[in-house]
Amino acid sequence: MRRGRSDRVGLHIPPFEAFLLLGGPVLFLVLFFVVPFLTMASDSVWTDKGELTGDFYAKAVADVFYWRVLLATFELGVWVTVCTALIGYPLAYYITFYLRDPLLRRLIYIVIVTPLFTSNVVRAFAWMLVLGRQGVVNKSLILTGIADSPLLLMNTRFAMVVGLIYILLPIFVLTVASILQGINRSLLEAARDLGAGAATTFWKVTFPLSLPGVLAGSILVFTLSVSAYVTPAVMSGGRHLVMPMVIFQQYLVSFDYHVGAVLSIMLLVMTLLLLGVNFYFLGRRGKVA
């Protein structure tokens, strides 16, 4: 029996309509990603006199200082990703499986995304009220006798991690929650019917099925952490450096576009390499499992 058009897997879109559909997004990407990227890449290899050179790369790559800053950047990214996952997963899980009231669920989502709507100055002031000498954390530590005098919490690496978690948590929670919502509940019920306890059902069924969301959320959080400028600049108090701060200095303070471009490409390549290694090992683990 011949299969009709309607039996074909997938949707057939005529070429002209496909062109119209894809044209916009492709044009957007070309204009706002490809063109700026190529401009930046050309700055990294062409001198002001228009001569092709590898000197900018040679100098940057041979400089231990930039590698140290890159390492500090990735350390920050790992801390932020791990902490965001540890806080965000239970939150997403609770919203998906325990929050029955749709109105309350919407309210919680609004609360979660609120940090994205506040300005950096307001956020900086808010963090001073929480992490400052007179802040809630220090007052609690002194009241409970854990500390004798206020601890220096603001303008530290700890503050940078906390500031980034605050901003990136909504992205992780929303990504994981969307995957958790798609899990077929009958699979969980089947596990329970077959004698699995709540913990076993979670670790053997729910968590493995939610891994694509955890992976996507982690990638988003990691890449946004290592490329963040404003939050690290405000929360570090200029006492710690990450690569986006050095890139900003090169572009907008020293006006050295060549070194700025090289450092931007170093950050991009190293981030892609790290993500590639991550995908490779996760893929292998998936096959073994």
């Binding site: 950096n120 100055v121 900086a124 002031f125 001073m128 603001m154 303008n155 600049a233 405000v234 108090g237 200029g238 006492r239």
Partner: peptide, 14 residues
């Protein structure tokens, strides 16, 4: 130093 501030807004908050 407490901080080497990146903008006038941030130092005003401090």
């Amino acid at each position: 130093a407490l901080s080497y501030y990146p903008s006038s807004g941030v130092v005003a908050s401090s």
